Simulated assay, not measured.
Amino acid sequence: MKKLKYTLIIFLLLFSTKEIVAQKDTIALQRKARTMLRQGNELYQKQQFTDASVAYQKALGNNSNYDKASYNLGNAFYQNKNFKEAIPQYELTAKTATDKFTKAEAFHNIGNAQMEAKNYQGAVDAYKSSLRNNPNDDETRYNLAVAQKMLDKENQQNKDDKNKDKKDDKDKENKDKDDKNKDKNKDKKDGDDKDKKDEDKDKDGKGDKDKDKNKDPKKDDKKEQQKPKPKQGQMTPQQVKQLLESLNNEEKKTQKKMNAKKAKGKKIKQEKDW
């Protein structure tokens, strides 16, 4: 029984010692964190924001729940225009802070960082959270009005762009439809023109055939009868020539016979003897 009591006492002593050591370590880390925080503040005052952010990060390395270090680190990031990096530090402060005033300031700075990042919806939400913790902050209220105006403008612009895209898509769809109809009508017109051409061609051919088919033989005979023919008794030039030659020959024969008769009846001229 005594042995058990001694064992229990020794265990309590060891546990107490470890707890004391842990408390001492925690206190030492907190002191280091405060030291680094002061160094960071001095650098921040000199506008050496990059070096200040390194000091604040070391402070948080010694005490991760150090609200002041995380808040000041957010400010150092903000001053270096690292707005996206600043927001998580302010959010950590807003989460771990125990008083509403500190929470309100953290949310206010979150709103400012969101405005710089052009995240107007995020800014509106942050400013509203800040006013919930500190309703009397006129600067936050003013910033909220500006953020809301920018958000409305952005939403309207997005709406206009969306409507414009829809209109452009509809116009393109109508244009494609018109082009398609034009091509279709053109093909149809070309086909109709070709069919009409073929029809006219067939019609012309058929017309000629029909013309020949419908040709009246009697009319052709009548036309043939109406053609000028040589009159009865009218001789051709060749016949006239032959006739003239024949007459000429006959005349020559006649003249020859007459000359022969004259020669027989004419006295021979004789010399007179008285």
Rank of each mutant, 00 (worst) to 15 (best):
Y6M: 09
I9C: 07
I9R: 06
I10M: 14
I10A: 13
L12Q: 07
T17C: 15
T26W: 07
Q30W: 06
R34P: 00
M36H: 08
R38D: 09
G40A: 07
Q48L: 11
A52V: 10
V54M: 03
L60G: 05
A69N: 04
A69M: 06
S70Q: 02
S70F: 00
Y71P: 00
N72A: 05
A76T: 10
F77K: 00
N82C: 03
K84N: 11
P88G: 08
P88Y: 08
Y90T: 06
L92N: 04
T93W: 01
A97L: 05
D99V: 05
A104V: 07
F107A: 01
N109P: 01
M115T: 08
A126C: 04
L131C: 05
T140F: 00
T140L: 01
R141E: 09
A145G: 08
V146L: 08
A147T: 02
N155F: 05
N155Q: 15
D160V: 11
D160W: 03
N163V: 10
D178T: 05
K180D: 08
D187S: 07
D190E: 12
G191S: 11
D192P: 00
K194N: 05
D195S: 11
K197P: 02
E199A: 14
G205K: 09
G205Q: 14
G205W: 04
K206F: 05
K211R: 08
K215A: 07
P217E: 09
D221T: 05
K229P: 02
K229S: 11
Q234L: 11
M235Q: 11
V240L: 12
L243S: 08
L244N: 14
E251Q: 10
Q255W: 04
K256C: 03
K257A: 14
K257I: 08
A263T: 10
K264L: 10
K266F: 01
W274T: 04
